[in-house]
Computed example of a mutant assay.
Amino acid sequence: MDATQWDERYRASAGGVWATQPPAVVREIAAALAPGAAIDVATGDGRTAVWLAERGWRCTGVDFSEAGLALAAARPGGDAVTWVHADVHEWEPAAPIDLVVSCYLHLADSAAAVARIAEWVAPGGTLLVIGHDVENIAAGGHGPSDPAILYTPELLRGALDDRFRVERCERIVRTSADAELRDGHAAAAIDTLLHAVRVR
């Protein structure tokens, strides 16, 4: 989907597309980190960025959908986030970042996109990426059905160089209790998680 299609989807939604909370594993990992500067890549309607800001992070939410960002800014707590209308292929921060998060960003060049946002991470900082795994198609979970844009642990691990220490890179099962969509979903879904720390 391009920016125009996402704008239409957000405008048609009642208060937002995604669940009000970030994925459980994102909350778990980020909650253990000392707050600093954070970027939520492809923030959508802002759930992860607002959650981080509420916990003391100086957070920037970046997305190419103006309609999504309008919903994000209107969220309770949305005024604590800096919202940026930009394409992940072109935009970059002015300084290295302590935490870069990407939830469900699926592109034709996903590995290159992950490698690009990894460059934004400061030494000692954290990169956290989660998205639909290719096995999610057979499992019947919500999400894209094109395997070319879906993740695998091998794809995400291969996007990093030796400046990063991989803490976790694995398939995880997201249950209906950890909804991705605002109205939930009936079945479990399979995601790929990458949690890495830049060591130099």
Score class of each variant (00 low, 15 high):
Glu8Leu: 09
Arg27Ile: 04
Leu99Ser: 00
Val100His: 03
Val134Phe: 00
Val88Gly: 06
Thr4Val: 10
Ala188Glu: 13
Ile130Asp: 12
Glu66Gln: 14
Pro153Asp: 15
Gly141Ile: 01
Ile117Asn: 13
Ser102Asp: 08
Arg9Trp: 08
Tyr10Asn: 15
Trp91Ser: 06
Gly125His: 09
Phe164Ser: 14
Gly184Tyr: 09
Thr43Arg: 12
Ser102Gly: 10
Ala34Asn: 06
Asp161Tyr: 02
Ala186Met: 09
Arg163His: 12
Ala138Asp: 15
Ala186Pro: 00
Ala70Ile: 14
Thr48Tyr: 06
Glu154Gln: 05
Glu170Gly: 11
Asp40Thr: 01
Ala138Cys: 15
Ala188Phe: 12
Gly46Gln: 05
Phe64Lys: 13
Arg116Tyr: 04
Val25Ala: 11
Ala72Leu: 14
Asp63Arg: 02
Val100Glu: 06
Pro23Ile: 10
Ala113Asn: 08
His89Ser: 11
Ala113Ile: 10
Ser65Leu: 00
Tyr10Lys: 07
Ser13Glu: 00
Ala38Cys: 05
Thr126Val: 11
Leu156Glu: 10
Glu135Phe: 11
Ser176Thr: 14
Asp2Ser: 03
Gly44Asp: 02
Ala37His: 08
Leu194Arg: 06
Arg58Lys: 04
Ile39His: 12
Leu155Thr: 07
Glu92Tyr: 14
Gly56Arg: 00
Val173Tyr: 07
Tyr104Cys: 07
Val62Ala: 05
Glu90Val: 07
Arg200Glu: 12
Ile149Gln: 11
Arg11Ser: 03
Arg75Lys: 04
Asp183Pro: 13
Thr20Asn: 05
Ala32Asn: 13
Ala115Ile: 06
Ala177Tyr: 04
Val84Trp: 00
Val81Ser: 04
Cys169Asn: 11
Ile190Ser: 02
Leu127Gln: 04
Leu33Gln: 09
Gly125Phe: 05
His85Leu: 14
Ala73Thr: 14
Thr152Asp: 03
Glu180Ala: 03
Ala37Leu: 09
Ala31Met: 08
Glu119Met: 14
Ser102Asn: 03
Ser145Arg: 14
His132Tyr: 04
Gly143Phe: 01
Ile130Ser: 10
Val101Lys: 01
Pro93Val: 08
